[in-house]
């Protein structure tokens, strides 16, 4: 509407690789439409300038790994109407949450010459462990189409059209033959949240679950089947411990097989 100020969209970075922010940059054509529809108030991958809040939508990338970040996320929450965490780091702690299964102090002393300057938390945790989150968009990295859908849904105050069923449904929608049945590959697709469009099975690869657990993941039954197919306990631990290792269901399943050995 004329005269009305554009909504402010802010992108914030925590412990992450920037890949999810890049998905927004990757929108290319659509990025112009986004810039038309909103004022981009913060976007670290593009510019260091930050426009003051409050923000209509804050997209938060990355996990919380330092005491400073644990503070910073609260400020962002206070300044944001909607806070959407994007990507496996922000929604499940990311690959860096592998440290949650070990002693982080040992890593620090093994890597840094002067560990005393390093201020870090034992665990890498998702944003929702620290502040209320309005929506979590999954993926490592997030899918750019889904990211646009979430932005337009929040701008237009409607529910984002993001399905939380299995990747298997995406295989079937695009006519991909199941790699688990036809090729005997250990696929995590049946317990994995949709969103990627079944990229890996379309290239004859098993899904390694970069989108994390689906709505009702039966990891136990899948693990049992994978064992029948010859997957070892150690391999199961590693399968469930990747980008979404800290997601409850995956943490539980990987821990069961760790004990097994």
């Amino acid at each position: 509407m004329p005269g009305e100020k554009k909504a402010k969209l802010a992108v914030w970075k925590f412990a992450s690789c920037d890949g999810c922010q890049l998905s927004l940059l990757d929108c290319e054509d659509e990025l112009l439409a986004v810039a038309d529809a909103v004022q981009i108030a913060s976007f670290p991958e593009v510019s260091r300038a930050v426009v003051k809040g409050p923000y209509r939508i804050s997209l938060v990338e990355g996990s919380i790994t330092t005491p400073h970040d644990a503070e910073r996320i609260h400020k962002i929450r206070r300044n944001s109407r909607y806070l959407v965490s994007i990507g496996a780091c922000a929604t499940a702690g990311g690959i860096q949450a592998l440290r949650n299964f070990a002693d982080t102090r040992q890593f620090v002393s093994a890597i840094y010459a002067n560990p005393k300057y390093i201020s870090t938390l034992q665990n890498s945790t998702p944003i929702s462990d620290h502040v209320p989150v309005d929506f979590e968009l999954r993926g490592c990295p997030v899918n750019k189409r889904q990211l646009l859908e979430v932005i337009s849904a929040f701008l237009n105050r409607r529910k984002p059209l993001i399905s939380s069923h299995s990747v298997c449904i995406e295989c079937k929608l695009r006519g991909v033959a199941c790699v688990m049945v036809a090729r005997g590959l250990p696929c995590l697709g049946p317990v994995t949240h949709a969103g990627c469009g079944a990229i890996c099975p379309a290239f004859h690869r098993a899904c390694y679950s970069c989108y994390g657990p689906m709505e009702t993941p039966n990891t136990e039954a899948l693990a049992q089947r994978l064992k029948q197919m010859g997957i070892t306990g150690d391999e199961l631990v590693r399968a469930f411990r990747s980008y979404n290792a800290e997601a409850d269901e995956y943490r539980r399943e990987s821990t069961i097989h760790e004990r097994e050995e």
């Binding site: 299995s166 298997c168 449904i169 079937k172 697709g189 049946p190 009702t216 039966n218």
Partner: peptide, 10 residues
């Protein structure tokens, strides 16, 4: 045993 993956229906 069921994964609720929906393959059977599709």
């Amino acid at each position: 045993r069921c994964l609720t993956c929906a393959n059977c229906t599709l």
